[in-house]
Nucleic acid binder design. Structure first.
Lengths: 195, 195
DNA sequence: CGGATCGTTGATCAACTTCAACGGTCGTGG
DNA sequence: CCACGACCGTTGAAGTTGATCAACGATCCG
């Protein structure tokens, strides 16, 4: 078994129960890939072929808007999935960049294999259903936070929820994730937070 | 067959293929409910027992934040699902209100029946997986819009995407959905939009 | 008819952005 | 192994966007 599959196995077993041979079958559809820091696995205008599970390192998905500003959509470190979700699901050209923030290793399924997996075993289908449900819930929480909290509160929540992310991603990317400019985050940290 | 199930049947058949008896089986887990204007089907602190499919009328999910301001999380008219997603999925106390904006009719599944359905037939599981995947994609688009667009652009997009919603929900609820105050939306409409 | 509900308008204010400049650090090539 | 440039965070000053508060008018419905 490849390096890193142990992490994915644990990840899966927290969501569904699989027999050993089912695990092996499931994992056989994934292939490992090494990505060097600053290298891209998804770029705008190309259809993203894979859903990616990070087994080592740190990756980041972001968009560049009409005025050239960068907005972080998602962070991913070990045990997180990352892709341009819309583009991957509907197999349309990506609008995001997904970039390695550190030298990383990921496990990839491509869209065809994912579809095969879902058809192969109802448990696999269940796994993807649970993932999607939780993602929806997660994204909805993010929408709610954006509607109801101030910039400072959003930053505090971020520190609280993702303490492991804080030191592995540049500050400007965290600023753009919570929806403020680098400068303003810098000022908040200086004026209002004890760090 | 109950009134309204025809809508749900069409809705399902756009996502998965079912035989007639499977349809009937699926639909037998749902029950219709009539909700009068201004009546609530979900309230904070109560665990939401149902996922709701609107067959007639209009419903709205919103949150009241710490300073007493209302924020619309979701609109639903005919053929839309609505619930407090986080609370329903994890069976925790709701944080949202879900209210009928017009006299409405909905079809309800409760959590236990939904779980039974998923276990009963892999196709049913697939249906819920597809719903969840699309919801994730949808919510992610909303996050991206909020990060990259101005208030005016968000309102224009709303008009563009949900022309049917505009006349069925009060303006302040649309304002809070796109993340501005009623007053500011009113001014935008006056100053900058031809209506 | 009368109150609730909703949208509008004006004046002022706060949150956050923009632009420009600077300083530190880190990694890479010569 | 040093120097230089990229990268990143910080700071200041001024500008915008959108919020807040208060008042008013219209409409709808019972």
């Amino acid at each position: 078994m490849q390096e890193g599959t142990a992490l994915l196995k644990t990840h899966i077993s927290k969501r569904i129960f699989l027999e050993d041979d089912e695990f092996e079958h499931f994992l056989s559809f994934f292939s490992p890939k090494i990505v060097k820091k600053r290298q891209y696995i998804i770029q705008p205008d190309f259809i993203p072929s894979h859903r990616n599970f990070v087994t080592k390192g740190a990756m980041r998905a972001y968009i560049i808007d009409a005025s050239g500003n960068e907005h972080t959509i998602q962070f991913a470190i070990e045990n997180w999935w990352i892709t341009d979700y819309n583009a991957y699901i509907y197999q349309k050209p990506a609008t995001m960049f997904v970039m390695a923030q550190e030298d990383s290793t990921i496990l990839q399924v491509n869209r065809e294999n994912e579809i095969k997996l879902k058809a192969l075993n109802p448990k696999f289908e269940t796994f993807f259903r649970i993932m999607a449900e939780r993602s929806t819930a997660y994204m909805q929480r993010r929408v709610i936070e954006r509607l109801t909290l101030s910039a400072e509160e959003r930053y505090r929540q971020f520190l609280d929820k993702y303490p492991l992310m804080v030191n592995r991603f540049p500050q400007y990317s965290i600023a753009s994730y919570i929806g403020v400019t680098t400068e303003f985050l810098s000022r908040m940290r200086k004026d209002r937070l004890g760090r």
